[in-house]
């Protein structure tokens, strides 16, 4: 988000006392939403480049695999290598149908959930309530880091507290439903996913509350005056 836009949002916030996100804002200007209203959480992926699929990561991993395979062959013999491949194919056949369904769920949800709605839920709360809301919404936000971090930045620029932002990121990274559906249930099974989810429930709250105890000068975010001063520069 541009600084100019952030300033305009700040102005709106001060004027209304609370943010208005939906199209009902009484303004001749563009709606003061965190992002243009109705913008999907992530832009639709309509093309793939060769590099995205076979980038550096792919070749580094391929090299590591060849080395590991050669070492395996040398130390344990060809039978073990063949065994390993058979295991891989079994695993892939087990994962593939679940993985495909997970991808579809994520894609559909990105069409159904809009970024400004997510933002509204978090920034409307305050204090403990904001942390609790951020926890719930963080777990429900679809999309990878390319969608989540810009959302956090937008939230910060409209004055959302640090603890809520930390809680949001913690919740998204430990309990993000997309990772659970795409990766955890297919590869580890629903029982394990449930165990880890249960173990992670208090984490966003703990991280959010801990962030309040840390010295305030380590932040350059929340205080409205500071923000305004930064934007005026």
């Amino acid at each position: 988000m541009s600084k100019r836009r952030a300033r305009r949002l700040r102005g709106k916030r001060l004027a209304h006392g609370d943010m208005q996100y939906s199209g009902t804002a009484a303004s001749s200007e563009q709606q003061p939403s965190v992002l243009p209203s109705g913008e999907p959480l992530s832009p639709p992926r309509l093309a793939l480049t060769w590099r995205e699929v076979f980038g550096t990561a792919f070749w580094v991993m391929t090299l590591a695999t060849l080395v590991a395979g050669a070492v395996c062959w040398h130390l344990k013999g060809p039978d073990v290598v063949r065994d390993s491949f058979a295991g891989d194919i079994d695993l892939l056949l087990f994962i593939a149908p679940r993985f495909g369904a997970g991808m579809l769920i994520a894609a559909f949800l990105q069409k159904l959930v809009h970024r400004d709605k997510v933002a509204r839920y978090i920034s409307e709360g305050a204090g403990f309530k904001a942390v609790a809301i951020a926890t719930v919404v963080g777990g429900l936000t679809p999309g990878g880091p390319m969608t989540s971090f810009p959302l956090v930045r937008a939230l910060r620029e409209v004055g959302t507290g640090r603890s809520a932002l930390v809680a949001y990121i913690t919740s998204w990274s430990t309990m993000g439903f997309q990772r659970i559906l795409n990766w955890e249930i297919p590869l580890m099974g629903p029982d394990f996913a449930l165990l880890r989810l249960a173990s992670s429930l208090p984490l966003p709250l703990i991280a959010g509350m801990t962030s309040r105890l840390l010295p305030a000068d380590a932040e350059h975010t929340v205080a409205p005056d500071k923000d305004a001063a930064r934007n005026a520069r």
């Binding site: 309509l46 792919f58 991808m103």
Partner: peptide, 19 residues
């Protein structure tokens, strides 16, 4: 669009996942 994006995401991840 969603179907297309799901398939493309799958294609972009599968080679790395297999490796």
């Amino acid at each position: 669009e969603a179907l297309r994006s799901a398939v493309l995401t799958l294609i972009s991840i599968l080679p790395r996942l297999c490796v």
